[in-house]
Design a protein around this nucleic acid. Sequence first.
DNA 1: TACGATCGGGAAATCGGATTCCTTGTTTCC
DNA 2: GGAAACAAGGAATCCGATTTCCCGATCGTA
Lengths: 362, 362
Amino acid sequence: MTDRGAVVRITDVAALAGVSPSTVSKALNDTGSLRESTRARVREAADRLGFVPDATARSLSARRSFTVGLLSTDSAGRFSLPVVLGAENALVGGALSALLATARHDPVREQHHVRALVARRVDGIIVTGRTTEPREPIRVPMPVVYAFAPSTDSDDASVVPDDAAGMRLLVEHLAGLGRRRIAYVGGRAEQAASVVRHDTLVAELAARGLELAAPPLYGDWSEQWGRRAVDVLLGHRRDLVVAPRSGGAPPDLDPGHQISTAGPGAVDAIVFASDQVARGGCDRLRELGLRVPDDVAVTGYDDWEVMSLASRPPLTTVDMRLERLGQRAAELLIAAIDGDPAHGVERLAPRLVVRASTLGDG
Amino acid sequence: MTDRGAVVRITDVAALAGVSPSTVSKALNDTGSLRESTRARVREAADRLGFVPDATARSLSARRSFTVGLLSTDSAGRFSLPVVLGAENALVGGALSALLATARHDPVREQHHVRALVARRVDGIIVTGRTTEPREPIRVPMPVVYAFAPSTDSDDASVVPDDAAGMRLLVEHLAGLGRRRIAYVGGRAEQAASVVRHDTLVAELAARGLELAAPPLYGDWSEQWGRRAVDVLLGHRRDLVVAPRSGGAPPDLDPGHQISTAGPGAVDAIVFASDQVARGGCDRLRELGLRVPDDVAVTGYDDWEVMSLASRPPLTTVDMRLERLGQRAAELLIAAIDGDPAHGVERLAPRLVVRASTLGDG
DNA sequence: TACGATCGGGAAATCGGATTCCTTGTTTCC
DNA sequence: GGAAACAAGGAATCCGATTTCCCGATCGTA
């Protein structure tokens, strides 16, 4: 497979076509003024030799690399990966190649990668992060767009998911279904995703004359936390204690302290800050004999399908459209490269995905 | 942030240091013969100007790009992604950059990407796939290493997970725990991963004078299939029917047809072909009132932590070490670039991960 | 018919480093 | 003291394509 040394240069094509190298260049790039017959002859010679112009040489003379760097702080890539893929995909359309650089949370690695990208004279850089926390900008002599994690410098261009809009969609949906007693289960308390979602939820409820049916809960982003949160949440409402629906004690819970959501003031919906937490919550609700969504509606966030679809029932959730986010970042970057830079934070509208966890089988 | 036009050339450094450009090159690359004082002076000038040599120009004259292509057939990237990350990481160590190219199962896109990589004169290419099915090799004038999905041409270099070894580890583990009545639940029947794991399981059992406790089952790779498979598997053994452990009918199953694994000939372990399927299986076993691992031990495959750790109980499984696989592919590619190409398929030994689904809380 | 305009295509410069080859100036050794 | 060896650094060439400039041939028009 490796026909090493088979690299065809422009002079080879020129020789075969019986013209000069400059003529070949003009013929293949549709520039200059050449007879159509000459162009055709050159094209045929190029085809015959399988000539692929050396992008390195082209870059040198064009003074740009037609390459952009994708700098990902993340390693595992739960969130940054779709962004990277979306960006890569959009770049291809612009005839740009993508240099992948993963820093894995290590500032030293990041610095190293930045230098490498600068050395390669990339036309621009897209920086993505693991969370939506704002991050320090990088200092480089080419355009940069921050995706998912915005830059702390408001003069930089950033694209982030519109979490507030996502939560508004959820509240609107739940309110439309007549749910009034809504509880919130966040992820890690110090992360923007937990906080923004909570604050928006509270504001949206207030706009409808409602308030949270229970104090907000924070933990981590695991299914286990989702299960525990349900225990805490329902345990908290001692006034709701009733006999469980179908036989068998709730596995991990004190058997003498059984619950339900029947009666006035019962929680009729739980908004979880992520699909993973929501899935754990659904599992626990089911184990406690509560029906989702009949007794309690449940919503997730992220539309991570391996969670949202596998959950029983499948989750109503919010798709942040991370691929689109990456694509949008690429668009902004290409515009900046073309001399039309954007500034500030652009928020990408998310998409509500309705599934059985709020709608039942209907 | 974008100090455009601030690009420093070697002539700028030369001027500041009061030497010629060639001297700067020699000084910074530790070649030629120069007075140490001169080198120091040049280095200082370079530092002061923040000179980063243009990799494009360097590539042109070195006749190599110090770049390798990472061609991923996959889009979602459940498997190819860790491979890509592992490779990228190893390449950095070799001062190589990684060009990301995702084909998304589309031959046209793949062809397009291959041409782009050739145009960029990458030093080599690592090709990864979504599954372990052998794939057609690509035809390019530089070294190629196939990772995860091997090339159909045995002369090419490929690195794949050693599925047979993984299954041997599982059987050894289960047999060591005294399990004798082992069942197998595969994923999609036509995929190599399902088949190899089954065949190895059967062979290993035979080597111990055992055979499968039930006909092998095939479905897809979902949790739902794992749940169904458990139903089928236990339903299949009509001779095992006994009253369920704890009250409440098994949710989706015909209530008149209840089961257990008690008695001689009962299934005492289920080997699932993936963590996802195994997790579904665990859920169903628990719902049926069976204890894992007391009544039935369960094993998964992949060590996809979002599944294997979130499962109740957490899964004993096999880690294919995909990052290491990518790293190994990078090593082989670098060797090939340095003129020492490998041939044939190299199998990477996996790692057994023992968790509570076989060992209980011990 | 003659002169300028246009067309077609080649020669050469350019991009930014690396490298080879030379030219100096200094040592070394007989 | 003179030839050879060597150290230090500059000049020129090269990598492969693009692009500018320029020249010869053809064409149109007065």
